[in-house]
Every structure is written in C-alpha cells, then in structure tokens.
Write a protein that binds this DNA or RNA. Sequence first.
DNA 1: CCAGCTCAAGGTGTATACAGTTCAAAGTGT
DNA 2: ACACTTTGAACTGTATACACCTTGAGCTGG
Lengths: 253, 253
Amino acid sequence: MASAPLPETSEATSSQTVRALLRLREMILAGELAPGERLSEPVMAEATGISRTPIRTALVRLQEEGLLEPIQSGGFRVRAFSLDEIRDAIQIRATLEGLSARLAAERGVAPELLEMLADCVDQIDEVLADDEALSEARFAAYVDGNARFHELIAGACGSEVVRRQVERAMALPFASPNGFLRVQAVAPDALHTLRLANAQHRAVVEALAGREGARAEALMREHARIPQRNLETTLAHPAIRELIPGASLIVPG
Amino acid sequence: MASAPLPETSEATSSQTVRALLRLREMILAGELAPGERLSEPVMAEATGISRTPIRTALVRLQEEGLLEPIQSGGFRVRAFSLDEIRDAIQIRATLEGLSARLAAERGVAPELLEMLADCVDQIDEVLADDEALSEARFAAYVDGNARFHELIAGACGSEVVRRQVERAMALPFASPNGFLRVQAVAPDALHTLRLANAQHRAVVEALAGREGARAEALMREHARIPQRNLETTLAHPAIRELIPGASLIVPG
DNA sequence: CCAGCTCAAGGTGTATACAGTTCAAAGTGT
DNA sequence: ACACTTTGAACTGTATACACCTTGAGCTGG
C-alpha cells in the first residue's frame, strides 16, 4: 500500500474517450481550431490517433459543455463567444456560487469545512504577504488556493445538484475563477486586487460561520466583479489576450 | 409550398439518436426503469429496435442532463433524487430565472417581448376567470401559457449563455415550471394559488417594463415557492405522487 | 464572361463485430 | 452447512464498414 506511486492520472487516463475529451478541449482552447470551423471526425481521429467512436462521444460532451455547437447538416463547429456572453457567463457562475453560499450559511456548515476554507484563505494570504512581484511559484500557489476555495464553496451547501450546476457554470474557460488570473497578475495593482479578493474570501467564511446567508450570497456575487474588471482590461490591451485560456474563442461582437 | 402538412415532428423525428433520447427519457420518467438500475445497452437496443450506437449517445446526453449517473465499472444507472435535491433543483431554476429577469430589466426589454409576456399572462387570466374547477382543456391552456412565459423569461436578457443554463436547470422534470402543476390542480385552493402565481407573472412583466431589476429578480425567486409548497403537499399525500412526472425517481432520503 | 448544373470527395449517422472485463451463480472442498 | 473458487454469461468500450447526404469545385452552355 505504501509503495506504487499513483498511476499518472494525467497521461495514461484509462479510456480513449477521456483522452479524446481532454485532447480536443486542449486543442480548442489553444486556438488550434478556429471558431466557426467544423470539426471533422476523421481528421480529429487521424490527428489524435484515436478512432472515430470515442472522438464522437467527446464531441457530444463538448457540445453539452458549451464549447461546440451543432451544425444543421450534422456535426459540430467551434463556438465563438462575444464579450457580452463572457460577462454573462461570469455572472452565472457568481450567481450560482452565491446560491450555494447562501444555502450553506442558512443550513449551517460543518466545522471541518470551515477549517478547510480558512486554510485556503490562509494559504493565499501567505502568498500575498510579500510586497514583491509574484513569482511563478507564488502565482501557482495562489491559483491552487483560489481553485480549492471555489470548489469548496460549490459543494458547501451539501447538495450534489447544486455542485453539479456550479461546476457546469465554470466549464467555460473564461467563467472559471482562475480564468483571468494571469491577466490579473500582470496588472500594476495586482497585489492590491488579489488582496481585496482574498479579503472577500475571508468575509465569506465569516458569513458562513455566522449563518449570514444574504451576506455570503452578496459577497460571492460581488467577488465576480474582479474577473469582470480583468475582462475589461484584456479588452483594452489586446496584447495580453495570449495570457487567458481560450482567448481565440472570443470575438468582438 | 402550400400543401404537404409538416412532417410529424413528434414521431418521425429524423435521427435515431433523437428517437432514442426521447424514448429513453420517457421510459425513465414513466418509472419503467427503477432508480439505481443499470441501463443495459443491448437490452435497450432490443426494446426500442434501435441499434446500440444511437442508444449510447442518448445515454451520454441523459447523463449530462442529470437523469443518469455513471457506474464505476462502466455504463450508467438511473439516478435517484432525494426531496432535498428536488428542493434545491427548484431553487436553482428560480435563481437563474431571477438572474435572467434582472439582467433583462437592467438592459431593457423590447416592446414586442413585453407584449408576448403580457399575452401569456392574459391567456392564463382568461383560463382562471371562471370560478369552476379546472377542466382538462383549461388546465392544458394554463400549462401552455405558463411554459411559454417561463421560456420567454429564460431568453429575456438576450444572452444565449443564460438561456442555455436556465434550460439546463429545467431539464430535471421536477424542476420544470410545470413539474408540480398537476398536483396544484387537485388542491382545494387550486384556483387561488394559480391566481397568485399569475399575479406574480404580471408583476414580473411590470418590473421588466419599469427596469426594476431587483424587483424582477426577487419576484422570480419567490415565484418558485409555489412548486416548493406543492412538493410538500405531494410529500404529505403519497397518493398524488402519480400525478407528477418522474415521481418514481424520488426517494425518501 | 457569367450562371447553372453535374459530379466527386468528404463527412455524418448508424450498424455491427470483437476484445477485455465485470459480475454472479454454480459447484466443490472442507 | 458454509466458504471459497472457478467458470460462464453478459456488458462495455472501441474499431470499422457502409449508406446516404451535403457541399464545393469544375465544367458546360448561354
């Protein structure tokens, strides 16, 4: 039990379908497939070395995920997202996170969960303690803490249905809590904003502990203004578009 | 162009996959497949006369929809829903409808849309004008008006992303606006409650017209208390469980 | 030179075959 | 009588073959 390093979950992921899903998502977000372009199953099969069947089910999954849209005559094309849609996607996530937080506060959260949330906040505080610019390692630690915090919030109300729906809302790359973080990191007031974000995190934990449902909900909603702002920044400085995943899917519209 | 009655969209729906999806969903909601039961692809293929491939993609879609859950060793089983989960699913829908309504109010809605919404409300009012018990036909008219109203709200903010997400939230049968309506119809205070519901509809239209975002959002949320109450009623009187679609998926939990 | 038509190439939807694996039941040994 | 083993049936994941459809390019006729 003690030996045997975990089988590398990333590469040798058992099924072909999962491999195809990961690979295709990666290709789409990397911009290897232009928005509006039809995804030819035989071509993808050739490119990935996976047969058409798993490719096909991966395409269905990606459609449900929102990255692809069906074509009248059959098959799928890469979806393009307008800035307005991205704004809305972020608001959807924030709204659902707010719901989860409110329900959690109203129903009460287990002390262990509060502690785990506090751990995330502490980890981020530690990362931000220094006044120097963020190193790559510190940035990674922030991303990790932030992702864990938001995952915990998604499941905080103890409802599988809610957790699923929140996760769905995060599926779009720009709607994810970490979607615009790299943009954030290069901003002049980066540290200041990140500290503000973590102050909001801490306030949410406090609200959950005190069963303040409305406060927890409002905080989670307000919290999503930060990526909104980063989106504006990205809009204003097209050069930093490269920093955000799936940037190629964003169209002026 | 004038002749040729539209090909019956319901039965001869072009693709096998769509047919399989409809048929399987129907079977699950009708309780022909018990919750927890594994769905054998060959068996379903035999039962429906459709080959395994379309069955398979339908299963994937039903999983994304939330009606099925994956089994460790492969394949899917019918998902069971606890009462708490149903409550939460209704709240999710209400929350997202509230978001759509608020955004619509803030951004302003086209006069044509307001008119269409008002039409729904009027249609329902007409159905409820009479003080007698609801006939089957009047009930159907109510269901239709109600469904149209909620669909319009889902798309009212003009965002495809939001519309999609709201529709997703309505996918679970009990979370749909019409999910518990049949229960409502047999209640002693049926007409009273339905009139209350439509008063809320009308208030939402008013709020949209007046760009009162917070009001529109709060109304849509409150509006979902009615199905919540109907859920309680159903719980108290197990005999009427038969009236709601997918009742067999509800477990005590 | 342009419009319309034809034809071919490619692509999707579907069926089916096959290998590896899981699960359960029956049988055997104690 | 009970527990363990073994075997077989069934099922999933995957590959592949095939028919029908769509679409675009090239060709022909005006």
